[in-house]
Amino acid sequence: MDDIILIAVAALGGVGLLAAVILFFVAKKFKVYEDPLIDEVEEKLPAANCGGCGFPGCRAFAEATVKAAKETKSLEGHSCPVGGNDVMQDVGKVLGLEVEAMAPMIAVIRCNGTPINHPAKVKFEGVTSCAFAHGLHGGEGGCQYSCLGLGDCVDACDFDAIHMNPETGLPVVNDKCTACGACVIACPRDIIELRKKGPKDRRIFVSCVNAEKGAPAKKNCQTACIGCSKCEKVCKFDAITITSFLAYINFENCTLCRKCVEVCPTSAIWEVNFKPRKPKADRPASVVEKATATKATPEKPIPLTIKVDNAQEDFKKEDNKIENKE
């Protein structure tokens, strides 16, 4: 009886020992050298593996930054949109390099084709995929640049930062947005753009990408940019350019003076997170107040100014402050 136990222990022990020896040599022989810096850099990264930096995952980004740091002594072109400046500063510290601060960005939806502004003329039936619908038809309301409202951007977002608003049929970005750019790629109509987040989240942008002439664009959508170039003329900072009947505001030059918003005849230019302005004589009420005061009425083109979820709260806070003062 004892023999059996002894034999079993010896046999299994021997097998174990043999395997350990083999493993030891295999591990030695096939060892791959990796720069320990890569691990250190990776630790600093958010581990979201979103691909927003252009590399397949955080590990690949870490490898690329370490390589770039060694070869070019600069991290130019390498930036983690999710982690933003803080993370890149950390990465810079690990690698012993100075990293230029970048302005935080956010995804912005440049379409205002709500059912009121851009009424549907036909009905789409089929799979809920913008990419498919884009290949099939020009859009329910006739504007071939409009948001299709089927949520490819929502599916693409890894951060729960973009949702469809069932009332407007348009996506809404909230403050979880890391500007990774996944939605920008997912949108078949190039409606989403990454723009500077702006001081206090304040932004001004043209909420339209319709490159048609004014008349056909306006025919389909009340708030389409008609390329009238009023905004271009009023802008003192050369921030606005018009190409193929479409205005574009360069966020690097824009000083958020809001002049363009006032002159836009179709309310295609949006301002978000600004304080409501005082009424003027020639303009009964500013666009913002209209939007906040009343629900959009069918006959008037009123954009939904509040796009960022937390903006609503900001407004409330500000309102409270005013009330408190009074």
């Binding site: 549907a120 003329k121 036909v122 009905k123 789409f124 039936e125 089929g126 099939l136 038809h137 329910e140």
Partner: peptide, 8 residues
């Protein structure tokens, strides 16, 4: 009615 658009 609104016409329906769908894939073949």
């Amino acid at each position: 009615n609104k016409f329906t658009i769908s894939g073949s």
